[in-house]
Simulated scan of single mutants.
Amino acid sequence: MSGKFIVIEGLEGAGKSTAVATVSGWLEANNVSYIKVREPGGTPFAEALRDIVKSDWQEQVTPQAELLLMYAARVQLVENVIRPALQQGTWVIGDRHDLSSRAYQGGGREVDASVLQQLKQFTLQDFAPDFTLYLDINPKVGLSRASHRGALDRFERSKIDFFTRTRNRYLEIANTEANIAVIDAEQSLTDVQQSIVSALEQQWPA
């Protein structure tokens, strides 16, 4: 029996780390073996690309270069870690996946959707998560939370309009694809955790 791939998505400050911990706890309570991965990253090569894409440079990082780096890191992670784990029956919890590029580069950077689809088909083909939890938050609230964690990276210092476009694209996609659950990330921590568990139990009833 193959494993399942659960992805956590959301803007900066939405609480993805807490969501990953909540999903981990749910899997452990159900005696399911799992691993955790993050994007970009998850392999030595992909982690190096993460450092590149999040760092500051004296030149402008174009949307095209950013997008290509994201998919390069993603396909390395999928082929070297995620697919093998799923084939062995291990579940995978992903901190971001392809939906991030569709929202951040497609919505935020305004890269044409047809380009994203071609790149996804070239790198991932039909590979996709079994279930995605999208943590929805007002960008101003999320960035305020993120600022308390320390210095902001290149992405986190983007203008608010960028994050507004990104959030709108997230919601647009979530409202049209059945395997995405929208979680109100501005609820109390307890309510967010309960919403996540409820979504998981609805997806995989006991």
Rank of each mutant, 00 (worst) to 15 (best):
Asn179Met: 07
Leu124Lys: 07
Leu124Asp: 00
Ala128Cys: 11
Ala85Gly: 00
Glu186Met: 06
Arg102Tyr: 15
Leu77Tyr: 01
Val111Ser: 11
Leu77Gly: 10
Pro129Gln: 05
Thr123Phe: 04
Ala146Phe: 09
Tyr134Ala: 09
His97Glu: 04
Leu69Phe: 08
Gln121Tyr: 08
Lys36Cys: 06
Ala48Gln: 14
Ser188Ile: 00
Gln203Gly: 12
Gly107Ser: 05
Thr22Cys: 13
Thr43Lys: 03
Glu201His: 12
Ile196Arg: 03
Pro139Gly: 01
Glu39Pro: 13
Arg167Gly: 01
Pro84Asp: 04
Leu67Arg: 02
Ser101Gln: 01
Arg96Leu: 08
Ala65Tyr: 04
Lys4Cys: 00
Arg102Phe: 12
Gly13Ile: 03
Ala128Trp: 13
Ser100Ala: 07
Leu200Asp: 03
Val182Gln: 13
Ala48Met: 14
Gln125His: 07
Gln118Tyr: 15
Glu47Gly: 04
Val192Met: 12
Val37Thr: 12
Ser195Ala: 13
Leu171Lys: 03
Arg165Ser: 06
Asp184Thr: 01
Phe122Ala: 14
Gly89Lys: 05
Thr132Arg: 08
Ser24Trp: 13
His148Asp: 13
Pro84Lys: 14
Leu143Ala: 05
Leu67Glu: 10
Gln117Ala: 14
Asp136Met: 07
Tyr71Asp: 04
Asn31Ser: 15
Ser55Lys: 11
Glu156Met: 03
Lys16Glu: 15
Val75Gln: 12
Lys36Asn: 10
Gly41Val: 02
Gly3Asn: 11
Ala185Val: 00
Phe127Asp: 03
Thr190Cys: 14
Leu124Phe: 12
Val192Trp: 11
Thr43Leu: 04
Glu172Thr: 11
Arg74Thr: 05
Gly150Ser: 11
Ser100His: 06
Trp57Thr: 12
Ile35Asp: 01
Leu189Asn: 08
Pro40Met: 10
Thr164Glu: 06
Trp26Lys: 01
Val61Thr: 11
Ser114Leu: 15
Tyr170Thr: 00
Phe127Ser: 02
Ala185Gly: 10
Gln118Ala: 07
Glu59Pro: 15
Glu201Val: 13
Thr22Ser: 01
Leu124Val: 08
Lys159Tyr: 13
Glu9Ala: 01
Thr132Asn: 03
Phe45Arg: 10
Ala85Met: 07
Glu66Gly: 05
Gly108Pro: 09
Gln203Glu: 10
Leu133Arg: 01
Thr123Glu: 04
Ser188Thr: 00
Thr164Ile: 06
Asp153Tyr: 00
Ala199Asn: 06
Phe155Ser: 08
Leu116Phe: 09
Asp130His: 11
Gly107Ala: 07
Phe45Val: 07
Gly25Ser: 09
Leu152Val: 02
Lys54Asp: 10
Phe155Asp: 03
Val53Met: 14
Ser17Asp: 09
Arg83Ala: 05
Gly15Leu: 00
Thr62Tyr: 09
Asp191Thr: 13
Thr43Cys: 02
Leu68Ile: 06
Gly42Ile: 08
Thr90Lys: 10
Gln105Glu: 05
Glu79Cys: 10
Ile196Pro: 13
Gln60Trp: 14
Leu119Asp: 02
Ala103Glu: 03
Ala72Val: 03
Arg74Ile: 01
Phe163Thr: 02
Arg154Cys: 10
Gln202Gly: 15
Thr90Gln: 08
Asp51Ile: 11
Glu110Asn: 15
Lys140His: 14
Val111Tyr: 09
Asp98Ser: 10
Glu28Lys: 13
Ala65Asp: 08
Ala73Tyr: 02
Ile35Phe: 14
Asp161Arg: 09
Ala48Leu: 09
Asp191Gln: 13
